[in-house]
Design a protein around this nucleic acid. Sequence first.
DNA 1: CCCTTACATGATTGCGCAATCATGCACGGC
DNA 2: GCCGTGCATGATTGCGCAATCATGTAAGGG
Lengths: 344, 344
Amino acid sequence: MKKKITLVDVAALASVSAITVSRTLRHPHLVSEPVRERVMAAIKELNYIPDAAASALASRRSNIIGMLVPSFSNNVFSDVLSGAYNEIEDTSYCIQIANTRYNPLIEQQLITEFLNLNPAGLIITGTNQTSEARSLLSGVDIPVVQIMDSCGPAIDILVGFSHKDAAKNAVEHMIEQSFERIGFLGARMDPRSQHRMQGYREAMEAAGLFAPERIMTTTSPSSVEMGGHLLTALLCKAPDCDAIICNNDDLAVGASFECQRRNIRIPQEMGICGFNDLGTTAQMFPSITSVHTPLYEIGTCAVKTLLKAMHTQLAPHEKVIDLGHTLHVRDSTTRPTAPNYPVE
Amino acid sequence: MKKKITLVDVAALASVSAITVSRTLRHPHLVSEPVRERVMAAIKELNYIPDAAASALASRRSNIIGMLVPSFSNNVFSDVLSGAYNEIEDTSYCIQIANTRYNPLIEQQLITEFLNLNPAGLIITGTNQTSEARSLLSGVDIPVVQIMDSCGPAIDILVGFSHKDAAKNAVEHMIEQSFERIGFLGARMDPRSQHRMQGYREAMEAAGLFAPERIMTTTSPSSVEMGGHLLTALLCKAPDCDAIICNNDDLAVGASFECQRRNIRIPQEMGICGFNDLGTTAQMFPSITSVHTPLYEIGTCAVKTLLKAMHTQLAPHEKVIDLGHTLHVRDSTTRPTAPNYPVE
DNA sequence: CCCTTACATGATTGCGCAATCATGCACGGC
DNA sequence: GCCGTGCATGATTGCGCAATCATGTAAGGG
């Protein structure tokens, strides 16, 4: 093993002091042009890479961005993570993930652990932190982004969309397509799922179509299999349903297979709408309408905004970013008799 | 902000020296029972948490386990990551992921970056590292686990299964079910995909059924949509195919939808077999046979083995772990006329 | 022409911990 | 009863960097 290249080696080669090399990297504007070039040349020649541990120790601030998500298996979060990781590339920061398992107490514990690393920033999911967690985060001078939601109590920065509006929008579309006895299928029932259910309810009530027996939920995790089970259960309780909106694409796909097994025609006898538009719905036969949500963009935007907030003070209006949603209308909710609807 | 609790504070409370506190945490066997208890009590009372940066700087070894995967969007790797993260919980280590994008040169670059963090260990994907990367890793005294494959040139530890055998096994089953003109659909065609194709080829050749025109591949990423495209292309080139084995469940699901669109009956006119058994295949109608691969287990096993190797010298036979595979036979390859097959 | 000001650079110090070496102490053999 | 042995604990030091304060230098005003 050859010995480690340090600031001192670079400084010697560039004929400056060690601290000037440090400054060249952290605060280049404080270093004159010629010196900066000399230092950069020396860095390149020696292939110097700063030691993150030493830097963190001396500056009491690491290059870590902590990120908390409630699940690794939920595809929703793999998209968000993918966006975040892509955006972090080519910066000097790195993301560390942890799994809250949809549990605010675990989340609080993980926040404590993360804060101990003196992170450069934090990305957390949703807005239902414990009050203990909220006060921990308020008492710290690093930026914090809450992702997924665009409303709810903000700690610092909010990047997401309105789940209620998205669901409402989808239900309104289904009502337009003259579905009337629309059911709601929900799994997990985390806070965001509940907002979607609320959107469903408001749209149904506004149309005078709401009926509580058409709601079928479980706190178990969402899955394709669960979609079949929930539809079965719903049809026992409310056999006259002519459509369903699902909390999640998994459920919609599972419900759609269940219809095939039962020989229920989509959309003639059963309209189906999914949520998140994760890909399979578009390819199914018949294709399934879904609410497209900006998951990847939430990941990139959260990181971008965090990086910005680390260097500058954000104005209040820059602290709430609503990335919206798009309803992707497909065969499963397009009634032959109904007026044509722009698809995609 | 209250001041940070350090080793010194704990040492004062426990009436020992700072180094004894450090030893109590790192090398408890070197500390006598009564002192250890006193120190642990003081740690708990003060709620002391060691500073990772300082520890890394002083010991020249961080608590980071670097993990390289070729993709974040491929569900295969979310399962592996999920296993790895679950296994790392409640240890003092943390995982840092990075994305090689199926590119050995990017992988090499990322290995360089990771090594700069003085990680406790490394988990990398596959066995086709650049020779530069291999020599970098050999020259370092930390354990390295290559995941996914169980054969191929090992650097240190191997945790995975044989993709060739798995595919071969599936094709043999299909041949038993009296499918004869079996095609192969492959996307991405990374090294593991190629091993699967090789397994397909060997099984077909052994049965005297191999025909090169029944192979349809693309280097584009795998997706449900791509499954439809590939099947369409295959049927143009080799319209007499009576079955397909797919590189990936995505493709199998997409191909299955394509069959529905074309009114091709499964399995009577077309047998279908997927790979990885990610969940949807089991729920489809008809359900799709798939090769179940131990993805989650690869994640947990990789971490477990790495942790073990960090403390003890592993015997050679502990350094290659083949987690095998299981063929989950379902409707899509079960011919009514064929002998009954245990369905899982 | 001297002093002020602003900016560029350097010297010193300490972040919190663990490696290393040093010390203390009890016990057993001769 | 003396010394050697082995184990438990302590003192010192430095990891590599950046905060802080100190110093140097050039330009510009009175």
